[in-house]
Write a protein that binds this DNA or RNA. Structure first.
Lengths: 368, 368
DNA sequence: ATTATACTCCAAAACGTTTTGGAAGTCAAG
DNA sequence: CTTGACTTCCAAAACGTTTTGGAGTATAAT
C-alpha cells in the first residue's frame, strides 16, 4: 500500500514533535532492556553507576519524558486530587473560591499532586456523576468537599465508598469524617453581640440557601444572641439571598423598607454584605452612621470596601492549604504501613473566626 | 504463609468498597470474552441484542465503571484540558480568574472534558515544568494560556511542540496561533477620551508588571489619547502596581500626593481602581466629584462598588467559554479527517470592550 | 577447584482497556 | 451439497510503564 504509507508520513510530519520517545525506544538505542532503563532512571542501585549515567544521558538527549497515564495505570494511583466546585448559576463569581482554590492549588503542587477541578450545580445529577467518575473511574486519589450541606450526600457517598476525602465544613449525617471548619455559630454570636453592644435594637439578617450548613449555623448564632438579650426570639427580620452580591442588594432593599427600619444588617457572607451596603447607599444612607452592616469571611475586598466592612475573619487561603495537606496525608498513610509511626494526622479541626471591626459598624443613629 | 494471607484479608476488608469490578470480572461472570463485554457496553452492533442487554444488566448489578486511566492509555487521549493559572504571590485573589475559570469549567464539562488546574508563578521554573508535564507527559490533550506576556515562552513552547492550545491574549513572537483577545489599546483609548471629554487635564495612571502585554497596550492607548489632545507626550503620572487591590491603594496614595494633583486616575484593571477609590476616600475625597476613577474589566464588584465604577466591560465569562470551545474544536479536528468538512473553526478573535460609565467618573472639581 | 557473594542485568507479567483480524455458526440461494 | 452472506463471538496485541523473580558473571573466600 504505497499510498497509505505516504499518507502516514505526511500526517506524522505535520504533527512534528508529537512523536513521543518511550522507554522501549531508549532501550533499543542503548542496547539495554526496558527494565534496566526504567530502573536506571528511577535510581535503583541494582544498575551499574556507569550504565545509569549512560541511560540518563541518552534520555536527556532523546528528550524522554515518562508517559504519566501509563505510570498511573501501572502504579494504581493518579497522584491527583479532585475538587468539585459547587456553582449555583452559570457563574462562580465568589472570591471565596478564588482564595480557596489558590490555597488548594499551591499546597497540592507542593506535594506533587495534580488538581482536577470541575464546576457543578449543587445537588444535581451532574454533580453526582462527577463524584462517581472520580471514585469509580479512579480519576483521582482523593477529593475535597466544600460548602457542606445539611445531609450532605457527597459525604455520605465518599464515606460509603471508603474514598479518601477532607471537607471544609461539617455535616449532620452521624458519620465521622475528616474536616476543617470555622465555628460559624460562635463567630456569628460574636458579630451579633458586637452590634448589640453598640446599642442596636432593630436588626435585619440576610441568610442564604437553606441547605447550606454554615448558613444555618450562622443564623442560629444570630438568633441566640437576640434571644439572650431579651429581644423577641424571632426578633429581627430574616431575608434569604443566594450568597451573591446582587442578592444582598435586593435583600437589603427589602429589609430597609420595613418599619421600624433596622439600624443594623448582618449578612451571611461578605459578598451579600457589600451588596447591602450598596443598597443602603443608593437610598442615601451613610453606612456606619445611619446603618451598620456586618459580613462574614473577610474576603480581601472587605478591607477595601467603602466604608471598610466589619466582618468575621476566616483564613480561607490557609484553610485551603490545610484541607489539602490533610487529604494528602490521608492518601499517603497506607504507604507508611511498614514504616515507623508517622505523626498522627489531625482529623477534625474547628477554628474560631476573629471579629474584625471596621467602619461599616457604629452606634445606631439616635444614640448619645 | 498463613499469616500473610490473614493480613491481606484484614486489609482488604477494611478498605471495603474499594475493590473494583473490571471488564474481566464481568466477562467471567457472564461467560463471555472481555472483547464482547467491552463492545456490548460501547454499543457496537456486532453483538447480539440479547447479549447486549444481558451485559448491561450485569454491569449495572455489579456496579461496573470503566477505569478511566486505562481508557486514556489505550485510546491515547485524555479528554482533559490543562489550565495553568499564573499567580503572583501566594494568593490569587483576583475575581478575574474566578470568572474565567467558571466559563472554562462549565464549557469543558459541556464537552465532556476534564479540567486540570494548576497555579504557578509566571515565568518560573515551576511553570515551565508544569507545561512540560502537560505536553511531554501527555497529561492533557490541550492547554489554555492566559495573561499572555510580551515574549511569551509558554506560547513559543506549545507552538514548537505542536501541542493544541488557545490563548486569552496575543503575544509578539511573530508566531501565528489561535487566541481570543480584547482590544486593550482601543478600549483604553475610549476610557481615556471619556475622561478628557469630561474636562480632565491632570491624569494619573496605575500600570502593572511590565511583561504583561495587555498592560502595555492599555498604557499605550492611554498615552496616545493624551498626546492626541495636545497634552505632553508623557503627561500624566504613571505608577506601577501588581494588579491587586492593595497595590492600587498604594499607587493612588502616591499619585494623589503629587502636585498638581490629578483629577482623574485610570487603572489597568478594576481591582486596582477599587483600591484607588479606597485611597482617595481615606484622604477625604469624594470619588466622582473630587476625583474621577476608571477601571478595566468590569468585574461583578465594579457595579456594586461605592460609587459604582466606570470601566471597560470585557465579557470574561464568555471569553472563558469561547477559548475552551475553540480548544475543543482544535483537538477534535483530527478525528474528523475522513468526515465531511466541518464549520471552519475561528482562530483569532478580537473583541472591542464597551465603555460603562458609572458614578465614579464626572467632571473635574473646578468646572462649570 | 569449589562454593559463596555481590553485582548487573533482563524476560515476562501486570495494570484495564480498545481494536484488529479472524473464527465459528446459521441460513438462504444456487 | 456448496457457496456466500450474515451474525455473533473471541484471542491476542497494543497502549507505556513498574515490579517480580531470577539468570549470568565476575570476585572473594574456602
Amino acid at each position: 500500500m504505497r499510498l497509505s504509507e505516504t499518507f502516514w508520513i505526511l500526517i506524522s510530519s505535520s504533527t512534528a514533535g508529537s512523536m513521543r520517545v518511550t522507554l522501549k525506544d531508549l532501550a533499543k538505542k542503548l542496547g539495554l532492556s526496558v527494565t534496566t532503563v526504567s530502573r536506571a532512571l528511577a535510581g535503583y542501585d541494582d544498575v551499574a553507576e556507569n550504565t545509569r549515567r549512560r541511560v540518563r544521558q541518552t534520555a536527556q538527549e532523546m528528550g524522554y519524558y515518562p508517559n504519566i497515564t501509563a505510570q498511573q495505570l501501572r502504579r494504581q494511583r493518579t497522584d491527583t486530587l479532585a475538587f468539585v466546585i459547587p456553582t449555583h448559576g452559570p457563574r462562580l463569581s465568589d472570591p471565596f473560591f478564588s482564595e480557596l482554590l489558590a490555597g488548594i492549588g499551591n499546597e497540592a503542587g507542593r506535594h506533587r499532586f495534580d488538581l482536577l477541578v470541575s464546576t457543578q450545580p449543587p445537588d444535581s445529577e451532574a454533580e453526582r456523576e462527577a463524584y462517581r467518575r472520580i471514585v469509580h473511574g479512579r480519576r483521582a486519589d482523593g477529593a475535597l468537599v466544600v460548602r457542606t450541606r445539611q445531609k450532605d450526600e457527597r459525604i455520605r457517598f465518599l464515606s460509603e465508598q471508603g474514598f479518601p476525602f477532607v471537607a471544609f465544613g461539617r455535616s449532620d449525617l452521624g458519620i465521622e469524617f475528616p474536616y476543617v471548619d470555622e465555628d460559624s455559630y460562635t463567630g456569628m454570636r460574636l458579630l451579633a453581640q458586637h452590634m448589640v453592644d453598640l446599642g442596636h435594637r432593630h436588626f435585619g439578617f440576610i441568610s442564604a440557601p437553606a441547605g447550606l450548613l454554615f448558613c444555618r449555623l450562622r443564623l442560629d448564632g444570630y438568633r441566640s444572641v437576640l434571644q439572650a438579650n431579651g429581644f423577641p426570639a424571632n426578633g429581627g427580620l430574616v431575608v434569604s439571598g443566594d450568597l451573591a452580591q446582587r442578592s444582598g442588594f435586593r435583600a437589603a432593599q427589602e429589609l430597609l423598607g420595613r418599619t421600624p427600619r433596622p439600624t443594623a444588617i448582618i449578612a451571611c457572607n461578605d459578598l451579600m454584605a457589600l451588596g447591602a451596603m450598596s443598597a443602603a447607599q443608593k437610598m442615601g444612607l451613610t453606612v456606619g452612621r445611619d446603618l451598620s452592616v456586618g459580613g462574614f469571611d473577610d474576603i480581601p475586598l472587605a478591607e477595601h470596601a467603602h466604608p471598610p466592612l466589619t466582618t468575621m475573619r476566616q483564613p480561607i487561603y490557609e484553610i485551603g492549604q490545610r484541607i489539602t495537606r490533610m487529604l494528602v496525608q490521608l492518601i499517603q498513610v497506607p504507604r507508611g504501613l511498614s514504616g515507623e509511626e508517622e505523626a498522627p494526622a489531625e482529623r477534625q479541626v474547628l477554628l474560631t473566626p476573629q471579629l474584625i471591626v471596621r467602619e461599616s459598624s457604629g452606634p445606631p443613629p439616635g444614640s448619645a
